[in-house]
Design a protein around this nucleic acid. Structure first.
Lengths: 199, 199, 199, 199
DNA sequence: CATGAATGAGCTTTCATTCAT
DNA sequence: AATGAATGAAAGCTCATTCAT
């Protein structure tokens, strides 16, 4: 009884990866609209039909490329809430300061009307996981009684993450201790105050 | 010939306005790349060379369109610092929630590599003025001794403004009392605390 | 090894039929150029190389599909020449008025320069047999002395068959008694006249 | 008061002609589907946008090309009905025997489902005018009392015109006296018979 | 033998820009 | 100054055909 194999020529497993990598790079470098399937094919070293066989349109290709994104950083857990927050935010900061760090975000926003799948996936793969990490840290803090009862965790997350966007938009560079300064202010705003304990 | 005049047919100043309005609208609706000079000409009711006579390229046209942007809201000054902040932020929020409110921001970010003038002008015309308004409120507060000495005003501005970006990215809608919640947290973080005075 | 067999897996004869049926349907529906081998493969439930293994090119596939065509109607023989003619022509008419009834004819004409095999086979399988049926009826009539000596049978066939093409081209619909009217006129033109016998 | 001129660069009037001529030639030579806008542009010596400025799609271009078709032959009127008919039919025959004489007809038939404008215009420009010429001759004959009362003129036209299609389909060549033979038969079929007068 | 994968060449259409009046 | 016409270069997508299993 021979081993059952799939019929037909098998796909080169590296091809898929190369196409998506190329698409993602060009998406970052050029934005969705400037990214051409031709350029992706050239950079991936395949022909265009090889791409269209896998994804039926350029939008699907871009979507698939964004779907491969994922946060790799493990959640921080040092015991100190502010330190955990700073650590997560500094990872975030590093990703923003990479070349084209903000351009993918720009593209998904700019294409929101024309290609809404992009921002949906960007949310799902990048935005939400990072927010969840921050939120988890804050939830642990709350469980330990470190936060004032009325502290709004979701607002806190928005303040922390958003400050980087705001700063980037204002200046395109971010000073080294930025994350720490943010957390300093925020922590005074949400933590139980009497024992204004330094961390 | 007493009066000095330029020879030839004079330019219609209303034309310029119409072109830039059309360009700005399309820039918001479609993004830089999808915006076509043809479409701008059509919407402005002029021909393409009329545009190219004024701005030598599509990038210059887009740049000029963004240059016309300006914040119209008068700075708040109610006497209460938190109230002033909330007022400015709610204006900001309204502009974000207009149709295509975020898409221009997305476009300038996405085009940062290819057309860096766009983000420069966007900063100059929109981002910086709004930050200045917030900063002024905080400076007044500081002068009145409301803030802790170590409060970093720039960080505070980033926290406030950025929170809206972060929230929009996460959900594309912003709850009504959002600005107030943000200011609540921030104010605890930067104001002199002993007399935790309600505002 | 007494029984002589071909080595290897034998071809499924039903496959051949399915491919040709699909090809013929698409040829009629879309014309030669719009018919894609992909679509044929899909509709036949086979892969493209399965097709290319049997016919070396798209032209050969189309040719083979047309080769399968054949007239199925039995020749008429009622004893009355005009009735026989009308019967054959009404069969013809029905085939023309089927969906895409004329499109295959159009395709073979349109492709005459590029793929001349098509029209050759169409002649051989469809045109000639039907003409032969009409011709046979007329030959029998001649043998019975019904026709004038100088009557040109080939011309008569052209007149009868062609009238349908002309009518279709002019209007795309054919009135019910059309065949009878044609035969009426023709019969007066070729039959021995003195005893203008009604049929 | 200066003479009012149209603004803008005027179109080269020869361009339109050249494009349509090229389109028509390629339509005949290759059929609608094989005809590429690229090839038309090349043959006409213009760029593709020059074509697309005038006709918004390939179908519109082909339609316009067919719309330029017209019968140039003046209607015959020799006094003898059969001679008039023969004359018109021999003109028709000449047009069929030109290179690609039948291919345009084939194309409009083949495209009937996908591009129905083509056959509509072909009818309007070519088919109908020729039929009208034949019909006029027969109407004059009827007015002179040459035809039997019950003669169906439309059927007669179909018989005459169609015979050429049928013949071409059967053999792709047409003998010299074909038209005369057809008229011979038809005339016996529709003319008043007693004085079987030779013409 | 039959399959799914791959390809080079082509398709229609659009765009930013320049020309000629 | 302003127009409509023209263009070279690309874009997204499809096709007939061949390859590798």
């Amino acid at each position: 009884m021979p081993v059952k194999t799939v019929p037909g020529r098998p796909r080169d497993p590296a091809t898929e990866r190369r196409i998506l990598d190329a698409a993602l790079r060009l998406l970052r470098a050029d934005g969705y609209n400037r990214m051409s399937v031709d350029a992706v094919a050239l950079e991936a070293g395949v022909s265009k039909p090889t791409i269209y066989r896998r994804w039926p349109s350029k939008a699907d290709l871009a979507t698939a490329a964004i779907r491969t994104l994922q946060l790799l950083e493990p959640p921080a857990n040092t015991g100190s809430t502010p330190t955990d927050l700073v650590q997560i935010l500094e990872n975030f900061c590093r990703s923003l300061l990479r070349p084209n760090g903000m351009s993918l975000l720009g593209t998904v926003l700019a294409e929101e009307q024309h290609t809404p799948e992009l921002i949906q996936l960007f949310r799902e793969r990048i935005v939400t996981p990072r927010r969840a990490m921050l939120r988890d840290v804050l939830l642990r803090a709350k469980a330990r009684g470190e936060l004032t009862p009325q502290a709004d965790l979701d607002c806190a997350v928005n303040l922390l993450v958003g400050a980087f966007y705001a700063r980037y938009l204002a200046e395109a560079k971010i000073p080294p201790a930025f994350a720490r300064h943010l957390v300093d202010i925020l922590w005074r705003g949400i933590a139980v105050q009497p024992e204004r304990k330094p961390y």
